[in-house]
Design a binder for these strands. Structure first.
Lengths: 192, 192
DNA sequence: CAGCATACTTGCCCATTGGGCATTTTTGCC
DNA sequence: GGCAAAAATGCCCAATGGGCAAGTATGCTG
């Protein structure tokens, strides 16, 4: 069960992340220092650096978790599905079953949209995990490595566009609808 | 003709960028400080900050120039072409006529691949300019804003994948071939 | 051409940051 | 209960980003 040690560490990490998000929403990202986040999370500044290398890292911790979960979920989809269909199915299911997770993701994207440095880190994280996603796609279809990469990139890019749109639209629609819409556009974009 | 002032400023900016690239190639990105870059470019550290907010910014200055040129070139393509075709035509022409520009771009991507913080900034820059590219596509086709965004994202994502591949492949092939290949894959990925 | 407003450069300064190193505290296990 | 491994903390320092104010260069106008 991963040992108490592991679990406690994970809990602290999550607590630091939560504190970072909360304070950033309250005062704006630039209005918060690492010292304050550390204090809010009940650890020392030096310990903060043991968990995250920067404020941006702390704010986007959940992003990495999320994409990792996506990759795992894609691997668990039934073998008949194509990679693209599998990815779509996973986010659809997520949007229905755990809407709050999607909303939190949108919230982080929103923060990122208003803060270039944060956006940069978010994109960097996604780029790193995009390779894992491509590998998952490649393992599933017998498809070649380039095709797999292209599919994974296109998929993540679609989700980014969807997040951006949804945040701009005053978040009227259900986030799932926006995601489906953008993914449909991506599929159709090359069929004319 | 933009005034002496403007031109001189642009020249200095370029000089700083060049110095940053050169020193980073020599000693590795982390082995260079802003002070050293500033000195190599013949300005003070404080002036460096007037031109760029960070070392990453300085290293990737040409990236922004490049994408801006791409957007302008797309706007200048004949009206009959679809947005996607226009974008492809622009990079194809660029790869043939100014191969060195493409190689420098690949070089910067290579630097970015080995340095997460730099990659992050590169992606952030591209995301910012992606909106302009989407606007150019939207103006050209009568296509809707979402479709335009999707096309622009897919295109830039393809170029990133191509750069990554080309850099991994020991750069044997001509960069143009890799780009064409990835763009073809993107077109075909959704036609099965 | 002289003089002036504007824009650019620089020096000085300070809070914040990332991370190395050494020490202390906790934790899990025998 | 005690010990080895791991985690937290304190201390420290170089590097950074940017505000402020004092020079300095530039180009326009009378």
């Amino acid at each position: 069960m991963a040992g108490l040690r592991e679990r406690k560490k994970a809990a602290t990490r999550q607590a630091v992340h939560d504190a970072a998000i909360r304070l950033s929403l309250e005062r704006g990202i630039d209005g918060v220092t690492i010292d304050e986040i550390a204090e809010a999370a009940g650890i020392s500044r030096r310990s903060f650096s043991n968990y995250f290398t920067s404020k941006e890292d702390a704010l986007l911790y959940a992003d990495g978790q999320q994409i990792r979960a996506l990759v795992d979920a894609v691997r668990d989809r039934p073998a008949g599905e194509s990679g693209w269909t599998a990815m779509r199915a996973v986010v659809s299911a997520l949007a229905v079953q755990d809407e709050h997770i999607v909303r939190e993701w949108a919230l982080r994207s929103r923060l990122a949209m208003s803060h270039p440095a944060l956006l940069a880190v978010q994109l960097g994280n996604q780029a790193a995990l995009e390779q894992d996603l491509a590998a998952a796609v490649a393992d599933r279809d017998g498809v070649g490595p380039i095709r797999a990469r292209v599919l994974a990139t296109a998929f993540l890019a679609s989700l980014r566009v969807a997040m951006r749109l949804w945040n701009q639209q005053e978040r009227t629609a259900h986030p799932r609808e926006t995601m489906e819409q953008v993914l449909d556009e991506m599929e159709r974009a090359f069929q004319g």
